[in-house]
């Protein structure tokens, strides 16, 4: 088991928010576990993040009014809180994505130039 593990990716401050926004944007309404599973799937690693750390991000986004949660039933008839993007959330996603691209591009460029 241990040998399988890649080094854990420490998320940059604020990136988790963007990841959550993006996932909700592409997948539609989703509960926290669904989000965690999706992120693990994308990251190609089951232990990339503690699922618990999603919660502060969800609260933050909810307080900003970018997402909102509502209790629903899953297909297996379990109750779960489904989060979805609000209208401002969609705008924020666009805005944050651009910002991230600019930042990432800048960092990339710097990394390429430095020996």
């Amino acid at each position: 088991m241990a040998s399988e593990q890649k080094p854990r990716v420490e998320l940059l401050q604020g990136t988790l928010d963007l990841i959550v926004l993006r996932s909700l944007g592409t997948m539609g309404p989703q509960h926290a576990y669904g989000l965690a599973a999706r992120i693990e799937q994308v990251a190609d690693h089951p232990l990339a993040l503690n699922q618990g750390t999603l919660y502060p991000a969800l609260v933050r986004l909810e307080q900003k009014g970018w997402i909102k949660g509502a209790w629903q039933r899953t297909q297996n008839n379990r109750e779960a809180k489904y989060y979805s993007l609000t209208k401002t959330g969609f705008r924020a996603l666009k805005h944050e994505t651009e910002r991230w691209r600019r930042l990432a591009g800048l960092v990339d460029k710097l990394l390429l130039q430095e020996p």
Binding site: L47, N50, G52, T53, Y55, P56, R60
Partner: peptide, 17 residues
């Protein structure tokens, strides 16, 4: 195990909200 520390998650949640 996958979730990590429930208490810590609660703490973080509390701090954020």
């Amino acid at each position: 195990r996958a979730f990590g520390s429930v208490a810590r998650a609660k703490d973080l949640h509390r701090e954020a909200r």
